[in-house]
């Protein structure tokens, strides 16, 4: 075991893992995190705690992850390279592990121009690939960046990252994953998948490169809530491809039944993804839909979640 997190144990036992997503509040009410954690408890093996996603200021990932852990659910602390330099990141890693956090997801971060602080100066002292290698160095060599002094204590982190099979250049994306694997990533969550053809092609190269043997690949899914959301994501969100067939299905559904149709599509996708070689789990990104995540996971036949000590 590298970190001994529940997520790592589920993978190691050969289980098909399920992770969810919990967005911290735009305020400091810890009860919000606890409520969301309660909705997801028992339905996921671990839950991503986003780090100021879309560059909107929210409760910090490290604090919300700690509250979630205390509420009895295993967090995956997201960490973006946009807001902190290497001093702050390494310091936060020491703090996070002191709080008992055992999973991290290393991300570049959405550009600040998307959020509520568009005039902010971004940091990017290191990028997500370099962050992966930094965490690995702290964990495996017990050393900080640019220092040969041995760290006190152990930084047990199961290291995750994201990869987007739907961003250009498509033919490079599997090789970029290879680079992340070489940097030290243990698991990957993909961008939301709607286009199975592109995903299958990506996954085939991933398996041909043997990357599914070196890290666990979780297929990302996001249930569509309405025809409007579908069209918006298809046309406005960079790096998301939604096939016309899905847009048509969401558009054809009556307004009050659109959410059900979205959940139905999502469950079908999960079934299809489970059959694809190399897929080790599902990452359900039900944005501000924590209350429906359990229902989706249940309908997709992913319950009960394994209990491992």
């Amino acid at each position: 075991m590298k970190a001994g997190s529940n997520l790592e144990k589920v993978f190691a036992s050969g289980g098909f893992a399920v992770t969810g997503e919990l967005g911290p509040p735009k305020g400091n009410d810890g009860e919000v995190v606890k409520k969301k954690a309660a909705m997801l408890k028992g339905f996921v093996d671990a839950v991503n705690i986003t780090d100021n996603q879309t560059a909107v200021v929210r409760m910090s990932s490290i604090a919300a992850a700690t509250i979630a852990l205390q509420a009895g659910i295993e967090p995956i602390m997201q960490m973006v390279c946009r807001d902190r330099n290497r001093i702050a990141m390494q310091s936060d890693l020491l703090g996070a592990t002191a709080f008992g956090l055992k999973n991290i997801l290393c991300l570049s971060g959405d550009h600040q121009s998307f959020g509520n602080q568009p005039g902010a100066k971004n940091v990017y002292d290191i990028d997500s690939m370099q962050l992966i290698s930094t965490v690995k160095r702290m964990r495996d060599e017990k050393k900080l960046l640019n220092s040969d002094d041995v760290l006190e204590g152990e930084v047990k982190m199961f290291i995750g990252a994201a990869e987007n099979p739907f961003a250009e250049p498509f033919e490079y994306r599997a090789y970029r994953l290879k680079k992340k694997v070489e940097a030290g990533v243990d698991f990957i969550q993909t961008q939301c998948i709607y286009d199975m053809k592109i995903f299958r092609e990506w996954m085939k190269v991933v398996c041909d490169l043997g990357l599914n043997e070196k890290c666990y690949i979780m297929a990302g899914v996001t249930p569509l809530k309405s025809a409007g959301m579908t069209k918006y994501m298809a046309s406005k969100v960079p790096g998301i491809i939604i096939p016309q067939e899905i847009i048509d299905r969401m558009s054809a559904a009556p307004k009050d039944k659109a959410a059900e149709e979205g959940i139905k599509i999502c469950c079908e996708q999960i079934q299809e993804l489970r059959e694809i070689k190399g897929v080790a789990g599902i990452h359900l990104m039900a944005i501000e839909w924590e209350h429906r995540s359990g229902e989706i996971i249940e309908k997709a036949g992913l319950l009960p979640r394994p209990k491992i000590d």
């Binding site: 390279c81 946009r82 570049s108 971060g109 959405d110 550009h111 121009s113 998307f114 971004n122 990017y124 990028d127 997500s128 690939m129 370099q130 994201a162 990869e163 987007n164 961003a167 250009e168 250049p169 490079y172 970029r176 680079k179 961008q191 960079p238 790096g239």
Partner: peptide, 20 residues
Amino acid sequence: CSKGLYNGPCGGTDKGKCEI
């Protein structure tokens, strides 16, 4: 690169353009 990445491209590449 809008993020000054040394190991890009990030997932925000959109038809050869930057996500921003």
